[in-house]
Design a protein around this nucleic acid. Structure first.
Lengths: 243, 243
DNA sequence: AAGTGGTCTAGACCACTTC
DNA sequence: AAGTGGTCTAGACCACTTT
């Protein structure tokens, strides 16, 4: 039940760094010094220092020593997904349509290629809180049953067709005047300005030279009203730890 | 110049996971099997697997084996800081003022405690693109020279007074009707809806029991116009790698 | 030359899971 | 009991930095 030695060491060093005893730019004691201090082997000390390194607190410099890093104040972590604990989605439309220019550009569609669209309304306490639309390229012969069944959460729905680890998402956040069909669905005045989240999902291709950014497989927009609440993000070294 | 063995092993395993040869939930070969396969010691194989683990690709399960994880589709990373490469800030005001209720709440100010405020306008091509205001608690006897000199970037300005590693930021993103002084400064119609980023900076206190969330040391709001552009965030396993 | 971290070995013993 | 990962040792040799 006692904590392993390497965690005790990393814990003490971490405390020294967080408390400011060692400040950014300072050098920690060397591996050999720590090994002597804690009466243990160098490999155990290295394991301790590896913990702090993976947390982003220190970085080793070959031939010199371990140095305390500047915290990455400008890196934020935020969580955003399709599923919500508060409220429920109501399907408004599942269809095959001619894409708008924006959608065609984002998905790099061929000329005259259609897209499958789903539109949903998020309701909270019976009142609309957000509007959600997703587009995926339509390939000839796609059975409509398939996408009706599988059109659930965004990156997850591509897991069968693409290697899960190859999927990644680019998100942009901004304010836009909501288009007519969104305002109607949400019961808002036309051109109400809403918080809009756009997501482009890509799958890394097998030939990264030809397509370094990956192949677009899905595009989605979410229009959030004030009832949805705000987005939140966090910054600070300790975020890594808790994953 | 040849890559260390442990990186060769982790590279091959990573490729197998990304390509989908091993899918989420699958078990990797055991440490002993890999050690035999690559004709090396178990510790070297462990180092390889540690690389994949730190990348969030696999997780070891004591007594069972290493398993491929589901990618964390809902975790996004975004960058946001005070400094901008495009455009420049123009100071509008540095002052000691009575805080609004919102600011007093966020900073947990004592009754009648004042705050120092700075207000800046971000200009691009000579046109206002964003409005920035920051509040920090005013302590009696604070020399005004100090905060005028040091009022630069947000978490960084607290590094002298607090342990750098103890600083962390909570950010919220939403749409608000900009208040009068902001609209005036930006040359907008009153109550224009803007993208608003609020940041609360806290320092971890020495008694985490008394103040688990940390002590508020600064609060800031940024009002972004369309000229500022949108915020962007990314999701995908490979993000970790590149830090 | 001396000190630092980087890689690697060939063991050991322990704790957890499965059969 | 056998297989798995978790911790730890006491070395070795190498590459990099400083003196």
């Amino acid at each position: 039940m006692t904590k392993p030695l390497y965690l005790q060491i990393s814990g003490q060093l971490r405390q020294s760094v967080i408390s400011g005893e060692y400040r950014p730019g300072d050098m920690l004691p060397s591996e050999n010094e720590l090994a002597a201090l804690y009466k243990t082997s160098r490999m155990t000390v290295r394991k301790s220092l590896g913990v702090l390194e993976s947390e982003g607190l220190v970085r080793p410099w070959h031939g010199k020593g371990y140095f305390v890093l500047q915290p990455k104040y400008t890196m934020f972590t935020m969580y955003f997904g399709d599923s919500v604990t508060d409220g429920r989605f109501r399907f408004q439309e599942v269809n095959i349509i001619r894409p708008t220019k924006n959608v065609a550009d984002m998905l790099q569609l061929k000329k005259h290629q259609m897209t499958i669209v789903t539109r949903r309304i998020l309701e909270r306490d019976g009142r609309p809180a957000a509007f959600d639309e997703k587009f995926i390229p339509y390939e000839r012969g796609m059975p409509s049953i398939e996408f009706e069944l599988h059109f659930t959460e965004f990156p997850g729905m591509f897991e069968e067709r693409f290697a899960p680890m190859s999927l990644h998402t680019d998100m942009t956040i901004g304010v836009e005047a909501a288009p007519v069909h969104v305002c109607k669905a949400l019961g808002l005045k036309t051109a109400t300005h809403l918080l809009v989240i756009s997501r482009l999902i890509r799958a890394d291709s097998d030939e990264p030279e030809a397509n370094p950014a990956g192949i677009p497989v899905g595009y989605g927009k979410q229009y959030l009203t004030e009832a949805f609440g705000k987005l939140s993000a966090k910054s600070g070294y300790y975020l890594q730890e808790k994953l």
